[in-house]
Design a protein around this nucleic acid. Structure first.
Lengths: 193, 193
DNA sequence: TGTTGCCTACCTACTAGTAGGAAGTTAAGT
DNA sequence: ACTTAACTTCCTACTAGTAGGTAGGCAACA
């Protein structure tokens, strides 16, 4: 239930949606305060500094991502389906506007002016995602499901870039459908011919 | 010569590099003031509001882009070479850190909280770039140089997303070489087999 | 004489962050 | 059962600093 969410989780929820909309410098304690009906000082009680808040937020995001990918592996065994499920997840997030952009992709754009603690977590997310994609592509290639032109690590980077670029285009053009139009052919391309 | 650059051009130069580093909310008049040794109020003399400043900046960026692509067409006639030159341009910008990110890609991420005048120009840039890529791909396909799996417009969107995603990955991983590692195979893929 | 470019000085609104206290909760100690 | 102490959550009230923006003046120049 939503009503059982703790205050600190509510703070992270709204901060996350504000970051997705405008990045690290695009929100303030006052914005969060207004959104959940609590005073600024109370937010500082839960998260003393903005850097700590965002750091906790990215930490949670990374755990959620890890848990999501793990449960995905439990529900779907074939690598092609796993890739499809990953892409479908983002397709629906963008489609229903619940999270129209990856938190870490947003922050990666501002990398140079992020507090170091946040920057290193963003880097870690990118490494983790690239590793997951590479492992899925590798096992798919071993099964003969995928035909890779490059090593799995490079194909993973290419796919990740397509996904992030597709998010950006969908946002720039204001057209959620653009995401899947861009990403789907990139996945088809990997399937053994 | 750099020394003949007018003050307003210097303002746009530094503002552009600050936007590339941290987006619309990532810089202030005070930052520009400190960087070029002029008072804040003097910047307001040239650009009364921040929205006007960024709007002028994106306008200039779009003109520079248009001029660059035009001269590219004059120097290089074959579509494959044109595509290669476009990618090489960004490769060198990212490599020497002179402009490690596209201004409009940066702003597109913050689309939702941009002043409308800026947002529409960013959209226009994306439309223009997609159209240029589509026209290059189309003429390449007509020459038999490219073999496209999808209509040129869709292939253009895919390529543009790869380029922007590759910029983001290069920044996230702190590895300029990642850009070309991601983009080069996407171009090779288009070449007739 | 008016215009351009820059200045000093200032304004209001907002930024992250702090100090200190009120209210309620929990868990012993008696 | 009653008290006390520690802890949590949230509050009001405040700070120093920064945000974008304005008013008015001065000097160079057309």
């Amino acid at each position: 239930m939503k009503s059982t969410a703790s205050t600190s989780e509510k703070i992270l929820d709204i901060a996350q949606s504000l970051i997705v909309a405008g990045g690290y410098n695009g929100f303030s304690y006052a914005d969060i305060s207004a959104a959940i009906g609590i005073r600024k000082a109370s937010i500082h009680h839960h998260f003393p500094t903005k850097a700590e808040l965002v750091s906790a937020l990215v930490d949670r995001y990374r755990q959620q991502t890890e848990a999501g990918l793990k449960s995905l592996h439990e529900r779907i065994s074939d690598p092609a389906g796993q890739l499809q499920a990953y892409v479908n997840y983002w397709h629906s997030c963008i489609g229903d506007a619940s999270m129209p952009f990856c938190v870490c992709a947003m922050l990666a754009g501002e990398m140079q002016m992020l507090p170091e603690e946040v920057a290193s977590q963003v880097r870690a997310h990118f490494h983790g995602l690239a590793a997951w994609l590479a492992s899925v592509l590798r096992s798919g290639a071993e099964n003969g499901l995928f035909r890779l032109d490059k090593p799995p690590e490079e194909e993973a980077h290419m796919l990740m870039a397509s996904v992030h670029g597709a998010m950006l285009s969908a946002r720039a053009f204001g057209d959620p459908g653009l995401f899947i139009l861009i990403v789907a052919p990139q996945i088809d391309r990997l399937r053994a011919r």
